[in-house]
């Protein structure tokens, strides 16, 4: 699995598309109002899925651990949401925490971890 992280609007998806030659059909785009699927080559905006999990009382980390075989050869993309002040709302705090713990787990499992900064790649692992 290749993990791609980075801040908002940094060009993570564009980078993944060109590096892995992905077409739009091969990308599952997470949103905050639906569950996740691992059937496609790439899962994008994982931070939206963790927000869905927080709102619905689901542990995202457990879901990912349970489906390890389904994503172990995938490209996973998550936004880095870890550098701001502590969010005021409990949901937002839980969201940040759940996303952070998930990213740490995924980094450990990943063959490569890449951070995208202003459209440029930075190899972290």
């Amino acid at each position: 699995m290749d993990l791609i992280i980075g801040g908002a609007y940094q060009g993570k998806l564009e980078y993944a598309k060109s590096r892995c030659s992905l077409s739009d059909e091969e990308i599952f785009v997470c949103t905050e109002d639906k569950g996740i699927e691992f059937a496609r080559q790439c899962v994008y905006n994982i931070q939206e899925y963790t927000l869905y999990c927080v709102k619905n009382g689901i542990d995202a980390l457990e879901i990912f651990k349970a489906h390890r075989d389904d994503w172990k050869d995938s490209v996973l993309i998550c936004e880095d949401i870890f550098c701001g002040v502590v969010p005021l709302g409990k949901d937002m705090r839980d969201w940040r925490e759940m996303t952070g713990r998930l990213c740490a787990y995924l980094s450990g499992e990943a063959e490569s971890v890449t951070r995208i900064f202003c459209g440029l790649e930075q190899k972290l692992k």
Binding site: G6, G7, A8, E79, D80, F117, C118, G119
Partner: peptide, 30 residues
């Protein structure tokens, strides 16, 4: 300024500003 890594949902105008600044940054980076 790198203003893209916080856990917050901004209003539409702020998001437009962030997206535009990022687009300019990426142009300059290239």
């Amino acid at each position: 300024d790198y203003i893209y890594s916080d856990a917050f949902r901004y209003d539409d105008i702020t998001e437009k500003y962030r997206a535009s600044l990022a687009a300019i940054d990426r142009f300059l980076a290239k």
